[in-house]
C-alpha cells in the first residue's frame, strides 16, 4: 500500500537553514547538510530545500550545497526557490536534485510549467503555491514568498498547473504557516479532491494530531513541516509510530 509521506523542509539562506516564518526574525536552525543527514537517519520520506533568498549572487552557494546534500542522502530530494528557466532546472538536476519546485515564476509565466514538464517530465516538476483565504471560502495565490497578493483563485490555478503538466502540488497555507495550530484541512481536501496528482500539505504543523488530521480529513498525500522537526518538538520516528497506530500507512 502506498504510504503517506512525511517531509521535512529546509529553508535555506546564505548556506544555512533558517526558521522560515514570514521571512522576519529569521532564526538559525543549523547546518543543512547535518540536518539532512539526521532526517535521512530518522526515516524522513523525502527532503525539500527552498532557497528563500533566491538571488543571483547566492546561486552558486546553493548549487554547491545541493550537491553536498545530494551526495549524502538516499531519498528523494526536491529543490526550489527562484527557479525560472530550463537552465535553472538543468543546473539543479546536475547537482543531484530529483525534483524541482516552481512558484512565482510559474504564475507570471504559466507556459514555464508546460515547457519544464515537457523537457524533464511531470514527475520532476512540483508546483508550489502560497495561498491565503482573503475572503472566507475563497483562497488566493500569493507571490514572492507571500509578499505579493494576486486575485488568482488558488483552486483554478492549481487545476491549470496540473493540466499543464505539474506532477505534484506543494500547498502552503499562509493563514496557518508558523501558527502551529494545524494544517489547512478544508483547503487541502478541496485541492486534493480536485486534482489527479499528489498534494503535499504545508503550514501549521504543531503536534502529531495535526498530521493525522491532514492525512485523514484533508486527504493529503504528504505533509511537510520545518521548525517542529528542526527543533525536535516532534521527531519523525515518533510521528510515524503515532500515525501507524492511527491506521495511516507510513514507511517505518
Amino acid at each position: 500500500m502506498l504510504a503517506k509521506r512525511v517531509i521535512p523542509c529546509l529553508d535555506i539562506k546564505d548556506g544555512r537553514t533558517v526558521k522560515g516564518t514570514n521571512f522576519v526574525n529569521l532564526q538559525d536552525a543549523g547546518n543543512p547538510v547535518e540536518l539532512a543527514i539526521r532526517y535521512v537517519h530518522e526515516q524522513a520520506d523525502e527532503l525539500v530545500f527552498l532557497d528563500i533568498t533566491a538571488t543571483h549572487e547566492n546561486r552558486s552557494t546553493l548549487y554547491q550545497l545541493v550537491h553536498e546534500v545530494a551526495s549524502c542522502v538516499n531519498i528523494p530530494f526536491t529543490v526550489g526557490g527562484g527557479v525560472r528557466s530550463i537552465d535553472d532546472v538543468n543546473m539543479l538536476l546536475k547537482q543531484g536534485a530529483d525534483k524541482i519546485s516552481i512558484n512565482s515564476a510559474a504564475v507570471r509565466n504559466p507556459t514555464l510549467i508546460t515547457t519544464l514538464a515537457k523537457e524533464f517530465g511531470s514527475q520532476c516538476i512540483v508546483l508550489a503555491v502560497d495561498v491565503k483565504e482573503a475572503i472566507p471560502g475563497n483562497w488566493f495565490v500569493y507571490l514572492n514568498g507571500g509578499r505579493i497578493a494576486t486575485e488568482i483563485d488558488a483552486i483554478s490555478w492549481i487545476q491549470e498547473a496540473v493540466d499543464r503538466g505539474a506532477g505534484e502540488i506543494l500547498l502552503t497555507s499562509m493563514d496557518h504557516d508558523g501558527t502551529k495550530n494545524g494544517f489547512a484541512i478544508e483547503l487541502t481536501r478541496k485541492i486534493s479532491e480536485s486534482v489527479t496528482v499528489p498534494v503535499i500539505a504545508s503550514g501549521g504543523a504543531g503536534n502529531m494530531k495535526h498530521f493525522e488530521e491532514v492525512f485523514k480529513i484533508g486527504k493529503a498525500d504528504a505533509a511537510l513541516a520545518a521548525s517542529v522537526f528542526h527543533f525536535q518538538e516532534i521527531t519523525i520516528p515518533e510521528l510515524k509510530h503515532y500515525l501507524s497506530k492511527h491506521q495511516i500507512p507510513v514507511r517505518i
Binding site: M1, L2, A3, Q123, T196
Partner: peptide
C-alpha cells in the same frame, strides 16, 4: 480511481 502517477513509498 487512484492518483496517477503513483508517487511515493510502496512495498
Amino acid at each position: 480511481q487512484l492518483k496517477v502517477p503513483q508517487i511515493g513509498w510502496n512495498t
